[in-house]
Design a protein around this nucleic acid. Structure first.
Lengths: 171, 171
DNA sequence: TATTGTTATACTCTATAACTATA
DNA sequence: TATAGTTATAGAGTATAACAATA
């Protein structure tokens, strides 16, 4: 990728900008975690819901690989989320030692409300920006999302048919 | 880059795009939290370090307001971070019942390494994008960051140092 | 024997409530 | 009295290790 050398916006700078923006969002959104309309959902539960949504019917091991968590942790996490009515554990038809994880109607609802909350928070910031800047951001984000989905094959943010193979360990 | 020039996207759509992109990053970065070179740093500790960095000398109450956490939680959190050598608690010179929180040299180092890690992860995705898309993303993110700092007045802090050694794009 | 999921145990994180010391 | 910070206690999240059931 050295053909960008000398460009006014090298990739390193863009990566820094993305990093900085995400830090802002992290602090901003972190505050509103417990204020969800559907009741308190922890960050861990939210992350798990996101992955289950895009990997309907996945087993515990798969969920653990995508999230980078141990099966035991996920088992306990799913215990609580199942007790809260957010997910459903059903025995796999192909292997009696596996389970299939799916979002309940309430689980979908929680994700919808969470996305609505975050979207509103972002809209507050966007109101401070010029139209041209918003257009640039929209185009850049759309391309980023497409590239990320292409590269990582995961969690495209909703109903879209997402790749199943999770993210290869980059470490 | 002129695909959208005739029809500016509504803010709500851009906000959704930002939301979707952040979900990608959330899952992506969530995995690497324990793999930090400086030893394991939890998400809560990271968030606290970010705020302390941008509010040097703040007291526990201020930190709690920004993070949306209770003073008791922060007190325990700082107990552990101080034991890990990440932060330093010193008595306030103006009020003997307040403390001043500051990052230690090691705390700064942990943030630097964390930013480098995230920047590298983002660079992997950026490598899949066209130059024009990257430029648009850079402009949009820079404007977003400026607007967020203007609007929220928080945590823009050390982000300028983000990922200085993470992406050797121009090298 | 290897794999999937679950407990057992221990630690971190967070919250509410009670407590100490300042103001 | 009100405020800043710390404990006390409890529940959630996660990890390693040991276990049961299945392949």
């Amino acid at each position: 990728m050295s053909r960008f050398t000398g460009q006014p916006r090298p990739r390193a700078q863009v990566a820094e900008a993305a990093c900085a923006a995400s830090e802002l969002l992290e602090v901003l959104w972190g505050r509103g975690q417990e204020a969800a309309p559907s009741g308190p959902v922890s960050p861990s539960q939210l992350r798990a819901l996101l992955v289950i949504e895009s990997h309907e019917g996945a087993n515990l091991r798969t969920l653990g690989e995508v999230l980078g968590s141990r099966p035991s942790s996920l088992s306990r996490l799913c215990d609580r989320m199942e007790a809260m009515g957010l997910v459903h554990r059903s025995p796999s038809p192909t292997s009696r030692r596996e389970v299939e994880l799916r979002l309940s109607r309430r689980g979908h609802q929680v994700l919808d409300e969470h996305r609505a909350f975050r979207t509103r928070e972002v809209a507050v910031v966007l109101a401070e920006m010029d139209p041209a800047e918003i257009i640039a951001l929209a185009e850049g984000l759309a391309a980023f999302r497409a590239a990320a989905t292409r590269r990582l094959g995961t969690a495209g943010g909703g109903s879209a048919a997402c790749g199943q193979d999770g993210v290869a360990d980059t470490a």
